[in-house]
Amino acid sequence: MTRLRIASWNINSVRARTAIVERFLNEEQPDVLCLQETKAEDKVFPASFFAERGYVHQALNGQRMHHGVAILSKVPLEAHGRHDWQDNGEARHVGVRLPHGLRLENVYVPAGGDIPDRTLNPKFGQKLDFLGRMTRWSEELKEPTLIVGDFNVAPLECDVWSHKALLDVVSHTPIEVETLNALQAAHEWVDLGRKFVPAPERNYTWWSYRSADWTKNDRGRRLDHMWASPSVAAQAVMHKVHEPCRAWEKPSDHVPLVVDLEL
């Protein structure tokens, strides 16, 4: 059997955070790194930075100043593809096939603005429609797949610091949770975060920059996820949230997720 380590991280501008990316790569040694919110067109993405560290296989889908996703790998990548699940040309998805026939999909779901009403806030409607298109894609999916990224939804009551306080806050509203649950059911996706850290244990991946001391009030949310086809979930032997990254110099507001698969 081959052990494959895959990491996922909303880096919130890859060119601004190469120092902590390097530290993370040195500490965790992932075989594959999926990044979201790279905020870099493909032509200015720091491809050589990753290649020099062994990540010579790269699948990029970048956009100037906004969005952007990337898969950087030490193992060969095949069948690169992109879905426009928002149907507006934004760079929010890239997918590849890894050795052993595993599909890897890296996605950055829209945040959805501030008002949880598609009539008053078109961005919220775009978010729900994005998840709806992902659901229809999942219904037809036949290959063993791992989908990772910033889903921008905290589905469980224990996935946020206060369920009551955040019920009307975008990322934890009932309609977002219902929509994400429909997506999960469409392929019987296994939520690896909760497979290894069962509810209601604390398991956050994001803390706002607005907090003067994120460790003191710990107002976190679990917005980042790794979901696996049932057959792939059975091959997962380790999953963790790398929370210490949030305290590193010039951090992202998100922290990385890491999974080990035995294929």
Rank of each mutant, 00 (worst) to 15 (best):
R133V: 01
S231M: 06
E78D: 00
D31K: 00
S13I: 08
W248T: 10
F24R: 06
E249V: 04
E27S: 11
L180N: 03
G68Y: 12
R23K: 12
W206P: 13
R97P: 00
F124V: 08
G193W: 15
F196Y: 09
L141S: 06
V190Y: 15
T18D: 02
R17V: 01
A7N: 03
D129W: 09
S252G: 10
H225F: 04
D150R: 08
W206I: 08
E28C: 12
L98S: 07
I175L: 14
Y55G: 07
P230C: 03
L60C: 09
S229N: 11
G68N: 08
V32D: 01
S252E: 08
R23M: 11
G62F: 05
V69C: 01
C245I: 07
V56I: 11
K164P: 06
Q86M: 13
R133N: 03
D84Y: 14
I71F: 01
H163C: 11
A91D: 04
V69L: 02
C158E: 13
M226H: 08
L120Q: 13
A236K: 08
R222H: 12
Q63H: 06
T205N: 06
Q184Y: 04
R202W: 14
P230A: 02
Q63T: 05
R82M: 07
K142L: 14
S162Y: 04
A91F: 04
P256E: 08
K195V: 05
V258F: 05
D159M: 10
S138I: 06
E37I: 02
W161N: 11
G89I: 01
D213P: 06
S138V: 05
H93K: 00
V14K: 01
Q86F: 12
V107G: 03
W189D: 14
S162P: 05
V94S: 00
G81P: 00
H66F: 15
V259C: 15
P244T: 06
Q126D: 15
V197I: 06
P76Q: 00
D117M: 08
D129K: 09
V148F: 08
L98C: 09
R3Y: 03
R23A: 15
T215W: 15
E178V: 00
L263N: 10
E37V: 03
V160W: 01
S13M: 11
D224V: 07
A228G: 12
M65I: 12
D87C: 12
L223N: 07
L166A: 11
R222P: 15
V75A: 02
